[in-house]
Write a protein that binds this DNA or RNA. Structure first.
Lengths: 211, 211, 211, 211
DNA sequence: CGATAAGCGAGACGGTACGTCTCGTCTTTGA
DNA sequence: TCAAAGACGAGACGTACCGTCTCGCTTATCG
C-alpha cells in the first residue's frame, strides 16, 4: 500500500569521480579501501560540527556499509584510520644543528599543519570519536605515540650535543608541546600561531637546557 | 490494558533523598534544577565510557524530560553545566610567598583533583560533549577560561615580586600547564602524578623567571 | 551499568507465534509487514478507548519503530492499512434473485460483521485516526469507496431485472445504508441489529423500486 | 546559566477584541466561560486538520488552563460544549402542511448548515474528540439525540395527518437522514448538496408513507 | 575447466537515544 | 480573593544513527 518513506541524498558531498570501481571478485578491493578512507577523511575534514555518519561515509565512498564493517570494527576505527592516513605528511623532523632550531622548525611546521581548517577539523573529530569508541581511542593513542616519539627523538638527539640537562624530563616536555597544541585545538580560545610555536620552542629549549 | 512492569532500575545511582520533591507551582523549582544537575554530574562521573542519556538523567533526577529541555537547549548543555557546577571546588589559589611554591601548590592540587577517577570521567565526558554540541562547547569554554584566569593570576602575581621575565608569555605558560593536564587526561598515555605536577611547576617557574 | 529489567509486558496480545522471525536481508521482510499489520489490527480491535501507540504496535509486532516508519508515513496510515487488511473478509455480495433479497443478505451480513465488538472497535478507531491523519483519511476513503462499490453493484444489478426506478439515485441510497451503519457505530445510540438490517433493506428496496 | 527554551506565539489566531477582560474579583467567570467557548469554537471551526490544543484555547481566550479545567473535565468536554453552543442555531423545525414539505425544508436547512466549511470542521472535530474522550462522547450523544428528536417530531407529527404507514420505523428513518449527513461529512466522498437533501427528503417521505 | 570461496553493493532490520509535543495538575503572584 | 501565568510529570511521536544480516552478483582460486 505504501512504499518506502525516508530516503537520503548524499550527492552534495560526492566530490569527484568516485563511482564506477571495478569488481575484484574474491580478493579485497583496495580501491574500495581507499575510497572509504578518503570519504571518511574528507567528511571529517569538512564537517563543521556535524557528526560524520557511517551511512554518509558509505554513500560518499560508493560502498556498502557491510564492506566497511567487514574490515573495521566500528565507526571510530574507520575515522581514526582515515585521520592517521591523512596525517601522514604531518611529520618532518629536520636537523638544523641546534636543539632550539630543531624545536622551532618542528613546532612551527606542526602548528601550521594543525592550524589548517581541514586538519583542525580532522583532529577535533578524531578526538571526539576517540572519547566514545575504544577502537578509535586505541588508534589515536598509537598515532599520538608516534608523534610524541618524533619530538622525543628531536629532544634526545640534543643530548650528545650537550644541550640537555641530565635531569630533564623529556616526556613532560613533549606533553607540554602537544598539550598546548591539543588544548588550543579543542578549546579554541587561542590560535596556533607561528609566533606561539616559536615562543613555545624557545621556552622548551630553555627548559631542558643545562643549568 | 497492558501491565506496566517498571521501565528501568536506576536506584543504583540515586545517591540521596532525591524523591518527593514539592511542587513549586508557577516559579522554577530549584530543587528540580539541583536534582537534574546532580543526576547529570553523578552519571558523568560514573559512566565509564557509556554515554549518558537524557532519559537516564531525567529518570535518575525524578524529573520529566520536558523539564530538562525547558531550561537547557541540549543534552550537552546540561552535562556541561553539571560538570562546571560539580567542579566548583577544584580551584584553590594559595599564596606560599614564591612563584615556584604557588605553582607547585596549585598544579599539585589541580592534578590531584583531575586524577580522581570521577573527576577524570567528568572532564573526559565533558570534552566529548563539547566536541559535538555547540552549547556544551560554550560552557566548557567559559569553564576553562575561569581556570586559566586563576593560574594566570598566580603567574602575574609574581611580577611585583620580580620573579617574572618582562617578556614572558603568560598565556602560553598557562596553556602548557592545562595542556599537559588535558592531553594526558584525554589520551591517557601517562598519569597526572604528583611528581609530574611538581616537575611541571618547576619547569614553568623557570621558563618565566628573569634571565 | 544499570540493570535492565523489561520495559513492558505485551504478552497479553501476542496472539500467535510472532517471535523468531528470520532476517530476509536485502529485501523487505514480509513476515515483519504481517506482524506489524496484525499487531496494529489486534490493538485496534482490543483497545477500548485507549489510543494505540506506535511503540506498542512495534513492541507487540517484535519490530523496531524504524521499520514501521520505513514503510508507512504515519501512525494513522499503519492503523488504517491494518484495518482495511483485517476487513478483507467483510464483503460477500450474494445473488438471491431479487433486489430485496440481495439487499437483505448483504446488509444483514454487513451489520452482523460491524456489530462484533472487535470489528466495531476497529472501525471506530479507524475513523478516529482518519480524522487526525491525512494518510489515514486517504486509506479510509479508499476502503469505504470499495464497500460502496459493492453495494452499488448490487443495486445496479437490479436494473436489468426491472427492479429499479429509472430516476433512482443509487449513490444516495448507498450512503443511506452505510450512513446508518457508521452513524450508529460512532454515536452508539442504537445497535446494528439484524432486525434493523432487514428493515433497512426493505426500505431501501422500496425506495428505488419503480413507481 | 540558561533561561527558558521553548515559548510559543499564539497571536496568529487571536481574532478579535478578546483580550482585556475586567477582573472584578469573585463572580467574573461568565465572561471567561464565554471567551473559552468562543475560543474553542473558533479554533474548531478554523483548524483545517490541525488538532486544537488546550494551551491554544487558553491562550486565545486569554484565560489560564486552570480556569478551563476548573469547569470542564477534559479537553474534549470543552470542545464539545463549544460545538453544541455554536450549533444552537442549526435547528429550525418548520410546518409546511405536508410531511414531504416539512422534511424537505428541514433537511435542506440542515444540509446547508452542515455544508458550511466552519460548521463542517466543527462537526468533524467534534466527532474526532468524541472518539477519544468519554465526556466528549457523552456531549455529542446528547447533542445528536436532540437533533434526532427534532426530526423524529417532524415525522411523528405526520401520523395524525395519515401520512405515515403504521409499521414505519421512525428511528431508522431518522438515522438514515443523519447517517447520510455524517457519513458524507466524515468520509468526504460526496457533498451535502441541496439536491441531495431534496432527493433524500422525497425518498424518506415515500419510505414511511402508507402502502 | 568447473566448483567453490570470498568480496562486494544494496538495503532491510532491531535497538536505542534524541528532542518535541500535548495533557492535566499544581503553586505562586499580580490585580 | 480570584484567576493568569506558567512550571511540572507523564508519556507518545517521528527521526537519527549504529552495527548485523541476507540477497544476488562477480571474480579469483583450488581441485
Amino acid at each position: 500500500m505504501y512504499t518506502h518513506c525516508f530516503v537520503k541524498d548524499y550527492t552534495w558531498c560526492m566530490t569527484s569521480k568516485v563511482r564506477r570501481r571495478v569488481h575484484t571478485g574474491r580478493k579485497r578491493n583496495d580501491a574500495a579501501r581507499r575510497a572509504i578512507l578518503d570519504s571518511a577523511a574528507n567528511l571529517l575534514a569538512s564537517a563543521e560540527g556535524a557528526a560524520v555518519g557511517i551511512d554518509t561515509i558509505a554513500a560518499v565512498a560508493g560502498v556498502s556499509k557491510r564492506t566497511i564493517y567487514r574490515w573495521w570494527p566500528s565507526k571510530g576505527a574507520v575515522l581514526l584510520e582515515a585521520m592517521v592516513d591523512r596525517a601522514k605528511e604531518l611529520a618532518p623532523a629536520t636537523d638544523t644543528g641546534s636543539l632550539a632550531g630543531d624545536l622551532r622548525a618542528f613546532l612551527t611546521a606542526t602548528f601550521r599543519s594543525a592550524r589548517q581548517p581541514q586538519n583542525a577539523a580532522l583532529l577535533r573529530n578524531a578526538m571526539a570519536e576517540s572519547l566514545k569508541d575504544a577502537a578509535a581511542a586505541q588508534a589515536l593513542h598509537t598515532f599520538t605515540a608516534d608523534r610524541r616519539a618524533v619530538l622525543h627523538g628531536i629532544l634526545s638527539g640534543a643530548r650528545e650535543r650537550g644541550e640537555l640537562a641530565p635531569d630533564a624530563d623529556l616526556d613532560l616536555t613533549v606533553d607540554q608541546a602537544y598539550g598546548v597544541l591539543w588544548y588550543r585545538l579543542l578549546i579554541g580560545h587561542a590560535a596556533l600561531t607561528p609566533n606561539a610555536a616559536v615562543k613555545l620552542a624557545a621556552a622548551l629549549a630553555r627548559q631542558v637546557s643545562p643549568r
